Simulated scan of single mutants.
Amino acid sequence: MNQIKTAALLSVLSALLISVSYLLIGGVGGAITGIVLAAVTNLGAWYFSDQIALASYGAGAVSYGEAPELHDMVQSLCDRAALPMPQIYIIPTDSANAFATGRDPQHAAVAVTRGIMEILTPDELEAVLAHELSHIANRDTLTQAVAATIAGAISFIAQMAFWLAPGRRDNGTNWLLVLLTYLVAPLAATVIQLGISRTREFEADAGAARLTRNPRALAKALQRLDSNAKQLPLDGNPAFAPLLIINPFRGDFLAKLFSTHPSTEDRIAHLLQLEKGELG
């Protein structure tokens, strides 16, 4: 099912990229440009998704000597999950969050913020890391990173076309179409990302619960992280928000309406239900 969702998501996003190029760049040439961009973006995201996401949040690699407890915790979880050890990164910010990225388990990375290591207890941090390793095991990391990269390309083309449009003197320019595409295309790309993002968060939560046998630890962690995000939202490209364990932006009306994550309350309720004996 994950492979079907992945193929569907990438196909729709790629089609949107081609359509935006056709409308804003113009005609067959624009469509060809969109096809080339879609191919290059997919290929580039496939091989460089981890570097793109890590750079977006300013993450830096840390050695065992720099963070031995963090490395040991991840290694222990990997041994239990039969996963190869990912590279470990730390994001130098007090905002508390974490994410995993990489095209497959053999080329994966786990990044945590400085803030998350300061506010969580060891069992809560372990639960968060188990959540991220579940994403790696399910190959959600590739899907989310590729989707974010294509969504970013769509937004870039729309913005570029909008700001360059006044310089185009041909009478054939449909200014209303340019404006609508500028406004709608990035929103449509985000909505498409939401199609699988929420479901995969629930799946990763359940995977963490099974791996640690401690659903309540992740429930407590999510509660702390949600509170922290409201006070210290994480700066970064919104296109990569689906990678993070908690929505990094303030919970206003629009943020909730187009959230990349299920509500924290729903996730906690699901975990507590698993604690009652429904773990597989």
Rank of each mutant, 00 (worst) to 15 (best):
L17A: 14
E66T: 13
L37F: 11
L54E: 05
D72H: 11
H71Y: 14
A67S: 15
V28D: 01
E66D: 15
Y22N: 02
L16V: 12
V74R: 01
L43N: 04
G27L: 04
A59E: 02
E69T: 15
A38P: 09
M73I: 00
A61F: 14
G34K: 04
P68I: 11
G65M: 06
G65P: 09
G34R: 03
G30L: 09
S14K: 03
V74H: 02
Y57M: 13
V74C: 03
L77P: 08
C78G: 08
A31Q: 04
G65K: 11
V20W: 08
D50M: 02
H71M: 09
G26N: 08
Y64W: 10
L17Q: 12
I18Y: 08
V36Y: 00
Q75C: 04
I35D: 02
M73S: 14
D50T: 00
V28P: 01
A59N: 03
G30P: 09
L16A: 07
Y47W: 13
A15I: 11
A39I: 15
I25K: 03
S63G: 15
A31I: 03
L77R: 07
A55D: 04
L77W: 01
G44V: 10
Y57V: 14
L17S: 12
V20M: 13
V62P: 10
D72E: 15
G60A: 13
I18F: 08
S63C: 13
A39T: 13
G58Q: 05
